[in-house]
């Protein structure tokens, strides 16, 4: 029993990590309709940026989160304007090549600049175990990531539902041809949404930096899971991303223990396929939106 509770706690916290990375991706995927294969590399850049700020400027990674999110917002918006926008009406394959190209360039740039070695933010506090009411032992950094992912999701949902800009974003997601008829500048919405999506990765990177070391290929370790989470939850659905992330996290943790660590991916992909057969648009997706 003890071990089951511990595994559930580990799984839920891992789900929090996946959720943090996936919310930005689901926004871009669901609203701009671009499959951003450079998402993982943005995370990698964010981890390096946090490491530099922490080791050179002595900035606490959690303090670095906000400025990093803002800088990433502008970087994302700029990338959408300069690279994605000219391709918005092109074949989706071309967009994929563009984002894969950006990702490859970033990963190799990091290899050149930092070599293949690990760079780790030194924050022992985040890696210390803390006891959850005697039922499980988890790290503080993971708890922080878990709560930040919920807070960020809640804030984004409120933003999308309560503000004018948020409603405009949802309008574009629902119908990108009808939205301009309502006076919405669709291209501006795309740039803003892309910016918010990458801003979320910046936030995620700063929060995860104490837990995961930075190295040039770290992005590819996370990005496949993030895509699974996004499709599982329903493209563009923030609630879906969080629920999907929790499911994947729990499956990884339980299957890794009860079946075998090297088979956990088989298990979660089997569940993933099963859910898609029953609900092709994902758990919270809207039919026809996929």
């Amino acid at each position: 029993m003890d071990i089951l509770l511990q595994l559930i706690a580990n799984g839920a916290l891992l789900g929090g990590v996946f959720a943090l990375i996936s919310i930005g991706l689901t926004l871009i995927f669901g609203i701009v309709r671009v499959v951003n294969f450079a998402h993982g590399e943005f995370l990698m850049v964010g981890l390096y940026a946090t490491w530099i700020m922490a080791s050179q400027l002595g900035l606490h990674p959690y303090v670095a989160a906000l400025p990093l999110a803002v800088v990433f917002f502008f970087l994302g918006a700029l990338m959408q304007r300069a690279i994605i926008q000219p391709l918005m009406n092109a074949d989706p394959h071309i967009q994929i090549f563009a984002t894969v190209g950006i990702g490859t360039a970033l990963a190799n740039g990091a290899l050149m600049l930092f070599s293949a070695d690990l760079r780790s933010v030194d924050l022992p506090w985040a890696r210390q175990a803390t006891d959850l009411w005697g039922i499980a032992s988890v790290s503080r950094g993971n708890l922080v990531a878990f709560f930040v992912s919920f807070a960020a999701t809640g804030a984004l949902i409120a933003f999308l539902n309560r503000t004018h800009l948020g409603r405009a974003i949802r309008a574009v997601a629902q119908n990108r041809y009808a939205a301009p008829l309502m006076g919405i500048d669709v291209n501006r919405i795309y740039a803003i949404t892309f910016g918010i999506g990458t801003g979320c990765v910046g936030l995620a990177a700063a929060v995860l930096a104490p837990l995961y070391p930075a190295f040039p290929t770290v992005g590819s370790f996370f990005v496949l899971t993030a895509f699974v989470v996004v499709v599982l939850g329903g493209m563009g659905s923030l609630e879906g991303a969080v629920i999907g992330a929790l499911i994947i996290g729990l499956v990884e943790s339980l299957a890794g223990y009860y079946i075998a660590p090297d088979l956990k991916e088989v298990v979660y992909f089997a569940i993933f396929l099963g859910i898609l057969i029953v609900r092709p648009a994902g758990l919270f997706g809207v039919r026809g939106n996929e």
Partner: peptide, 17 residues
């Protein structure tokens, strides 16, 4: 004897085993 993928981002279940 436990195997895991080098691309894993979490080894907590391995450690529990």
């Amino acid at each position: 004897k436990l195997a895991y993928s080098a691309r894993s981002v979490d080894l907590s279940s391995v450690i529990q085993r």
